[in-house]
Each structure stands twice: as structure tokens, then as C-alpha cells.
Amino acid sequence: MSAPASSPVFRRYVALGDSFTEGVGDPDPVRPNGLRGWADRVAEVLALQDPDFRYANLAVRGRLLGPILEEQLDAAIALEPDLVTIYAGGNDLIRPRIDIDALASTYDAALGRLAATGATLGVFTAFDPGAGGPFGRLRGRFALYNERVREIAEGHGAVVLDSWRMRPEHPELLWSEDRLHLGPLGHRAVAAEVLTTLGVPHDLDATDPTGAIGDSPFKAGRRADVDWLVRHAVPWVRRRLTGRSSGDDVEPKRPTLQPI
């Protein structure tokens, strides 16, 4: 697939963030960290535009916004990208206490540094957790944070990659069995949304999650609920109580620019 003359061509793509960008929920044993994810899928399409295309993914699961910026910002700028995407703040939003204004101020300064590089900057909003589910009571907090993200992105001329406004026909099919991360269908849907928002032509089909893309690992029902509680919810709560993170022993899966 070749890009029309009017579409952007990117040669040095760097992805920053947490588990969402690392690709948790989209397993692939032959890839670094055993994960594929939406950012890999975007890179695969971008690589078709230019044989010299290179891609780095600095994201690490479990990271709060502060550590993401401390560990990944300088490294990303040093790679001299022409495209940067970042998702940060999601893990902060589910903490018991959060100062959204302080979080936004920190994020604003960091995005200013990324924008100053001249790279195209794509900034994600958080997903809508819905009225139910494990984070339904935090829906207002998510909405407020997203409005600040849109405001900050506008101030820096960044592209808003608006996960909040994604409204798939069968949203339950986009999630992994842990109900916290996207599954393969969700990662593919996000990749399609990112490419479309950037104006990059692609043939990723995210319109028929029940057929064209494959089965979802998400399971519903009482038995599935009990299994989820034991296998995923309890360990997640235990980590929160002990101050541990799922990413404590994880390294970025693509710390340098490489062909995809």
C-alpha cells in the first residue's frame, strides 16, 4: 500500500506510555515483551510508506504519569522522532486520590517539550469507563481529565487521539479477559483510529469485531466473573495495597529506533 502524495509520511516514530501503548492484552510470543499492540500495528502500516522507517516503543506497563515523563521523555527527544504518540495519566486516574489540575500542569510542560521538537504529536484521551464496571464511579474524573488533555493538546498544536469518543458497536468485544486492558480486537481498532486521525491510508478493518477480526478473549457470565475476580481483580488490589506495579521488572520493548 503506497500513500497518496497528500498523506503524511513518517520515518521515525516513538511511542510513549504505559500498558496501553506497550500492548498488554495483545499477546504475540515472537515480539519483544511478548506483545504486539496498537502501536506496533500503526508502525507496520507506516513502514509500508518508506523503506527507511524506524520505530521505538518506550512504554512500560503500570507507570503513572510522573514516571512515564521521568523515564521516557528525554529518551524520546534524543531519538529525534518525526512522530510521537503518548498516553499517560490513566493509572493516576484510578488511584484513590488525585489532583487533576497538578497532573495537567505537569503534562502540559512535558507536551510542550515534545511539541518543540517539531514532531507531529499525538495525545490520547482516556477511554470512557462507562456507568458500570470496575471504574464506573470514576467516570466524571475521567471526563474532567480528558477535557484538560484536549485543552493542553490544542495549546501545543497536537493531534488528539480521542479514545473517549470511540463508540464501537460491541465494546465488550474489544477488551481482554482481565477487563482492564484492550484485547487484540481493541488494539486493532485503536490502530485504525490513530491512522485515520493522522490521515494515513490503511486497510485495517475494525468495523466487524465479531467476524472480520477474530474472537475476543473477553468472557461474560457468572463463572467468568468469579474467574476474573480470582485471577485479575484480587492480584491488582494486592499490588495497589503493597505499592507494587506490574511493570516493576519490565523494560521497554523497543528502546531504540529499529525496523518493524
Rank of each mutant, 00 (worst) to 15 (best):
R141D: 08
G132I: 01
T106W: 00
L64T: 04
E70C: 00
A47R: 12
W236L: 15
V42C: 11
R12K: 10
G214D: 12
S245V: 07
A220S: 14
D74V: 05
K253G: 14
A43Y: 07
H187W: 01
E22F: 00
A5V: 14
E22G: 11
Y145T: 04
G199P: 15
A220Y: 00
E22N: 11
R150L: 06
P217I: 02
L198D: 09
A76N: 03
V14Q: 07
R239I: 04
I260T: 14
H202K: 01
F10D: 08
G25F: 06
E70H: 04
L138E: 11
L69A: 03
P134W: 00
V149W: 07
G155Y: 01
V123W: 09
G112S: 12
A158V: 12
L114S: 12
R167V: 11
D203Y: 04
P252E: 04
A212W: 01
G186M: 02
D28P: 08
L16W: 07
S6G: 11
E80V: 10
A189R: 13
P235M: 13
I94M: 14
L65T: 02
V200M: 03
F127R: 13
I100P: 03
D227P: 02
R139W: 06
D26F: 00
G118A: 11
E251A: 15
E154A: 15
G183C: 14
D205P: 00
S19F: 04
A15V: 03
S163I: 09
F218W: 14
H181F: 10
R137V: 13
D208K: 06
S245Q: 14
V24W: 11
G243T: 03
Y87N: 13
T21P: 06
G157A: 06
D178P: 04
E147I: 03
A43L: 10
K253F: 07
S176F: 11
Y13C: 14
A153M: 09
G90L: 14
V9M: 13
A233K: 07
L173I: 01
A102M: 12
G243V: 04
I98F: 09
P29I: 07
G183S: 12
T106L: 12
Y145C: 08
T106V: 09
P81D: 02
K219I: 06
P8D: 09
